[in-house]
């Protein structure tokens, strides 16, 4: 795989957009959100310093989609290749998590798989850290290690582009005239940048260093009061599950469209009161604290048991999105302290 240099982003993005639909991060207020790239009107191309506000999961797992029709069965439509620029390491790892559920499982989700096969991923290094970033707790980094087609690193005089897949390599080979070779000095600059931001990330989260695994902490919190106490800070807006790049619960509902019946698939949230309720009235998670606990158990225990990885990438979006004081880092820290105390108490006994 090749690594090449380009001094400006626009010609590169124009070349991508010539081949397929391209979505790029755009600064809206304080945040970056994705919008469709139009080469003829786009004059300023932005390189997002940190992850976008809304996760990239929407490109693979749309908020709402048609899943089935009757009486005539739904024909699965062909998906055209499309590109998304601006994903960070946390986003790439969240796609790895979604792949486990929707693509690598014995039951594949055909809609996800079709989009996944056609997405062209252009990731980028983080040039700084967000206040709420804690990806290092999950072995995340300020730059991508894999899972991209092309990765872009911003340096003083331009950008270093690295291919991470055959598709990405093919793109570089098909657009030779756009790129130049990378001098060693620029690679060194890239590596210094990466080390600097990585260091910031770790400095930012020193308080969150746990002496044991998160799994052990969370699994032992089954009877903890922390969830009920913290739930007093939760206004049940469900924003945390919407912006989470790994949350993937959905709701199937039936409706009537023009001349046929449709089954729709729509994002759902385990924070919703009736999420797990059955028709007979039973509801294992009636109490908000229990729903929050379930969310933590799912992310740090159950998913790990099932798929071998945590269902959290530490992107901190849930922290940013929360309109109140609910903070996943605080909950984890409190649980961890409680676990430590419990362990010490057991030793003294």
């Amino acid at each position: 795989m090749e690594t090449v240099f380009i001094s400006k982003l626009k010609p590169f993005l124009d070349a991508v957009a010539e081949q397929m639909e391209l979505y790029v991060p755009k600064k809206t207020g304080r945040h970056f959100v994705y919008s469709k790239y139009n080469p003829s009107t786009e004059t300023v191309v932005e390189f997002n310093n940190i992850r976008t506000c809304v996760p990239a999961k929407e490109f693979l797992f749309p908020v709402r989609e048609l899943a089935a029709t009757s009486p005539k069965s739904l024909d699965l439509k062909d998906i055209k290749p499309f590109a998304v620029f601006g994903l960070k390491d946390c986003d790439l790892r969240s796609i790895e998590i979604l792949d486990k559920v929707f693509a690598d499982d014995e039951f594949q989700d055909p809609f996800y798989v079709a989009l996944r096969e056609n997405i062209f991923i252009i990731s980028g290094d983080c040039t700084e850290i967000g206040e709420s970033c804690f990806c290092n707790l999950f072995n995340g980094r300020a730059f991508a290690g894999g899972g991209f087609d092309l990765n872009i690193s911003k340096i003083n005089d331009g950008f270093i582009i690295e291919a991470g897949s055959q598709k990405g390599q093919g793109f570089i080979e098909g657009h030779r005239s756009l790129f130049a070779d990378v001098p060693e000095a620029l690679l060194a600059e890239r590596n210094e940048n990466r080390a600097r931001v990585q260091n910031q990330l770790e400095q930012n989260n020193t308080e969150l260093q746990l002496n044991t695994t998160l799994r052990e902490v969370v699994e032992n919190s089954q009877n903890s009061e922390v969830f009920d106490v913290e739930s007093q800070n939760c206004v049940e807006c469900q924003a945390c599950t919407r912006v989470c790049p790994t949350c993937h619960c959905f709701y199937l509902y039936d409706t009537k469209l023009q001349s046929y019946f449709a089954k729709m698939k729509m994002w759902d949230s385990c924070m919703r009161t009736g999420f797990a309720a059955v028709a007979g009235g039973a509801n294992p998670h009636k109490v908000l604290g229990d729903r929050i606990k379930h969310r933590f158990m799912h992310k740090f225990v159950y998913f790990l048991d099932r798929y071998g990885i945590d269902m959290c990438v530490g992107c901190g979006r849930c922290v940013d999105a929360d309109p109140s004081e609910m903070d996943m880092r605080t909950v984890l820290r409190k649980l961890s302290e409680e676990f430590k105390d419990k362990k010490e108490a057991n030793v003294t006994k």
Partner: peptide
């Protein structure tokens, strides 16, 4: 996948 019927893992 959809998550509504989870019982532990």
């Amino acid at each position: 996948k959809c998550g509504h019927c989870m019982l532990g893992k």
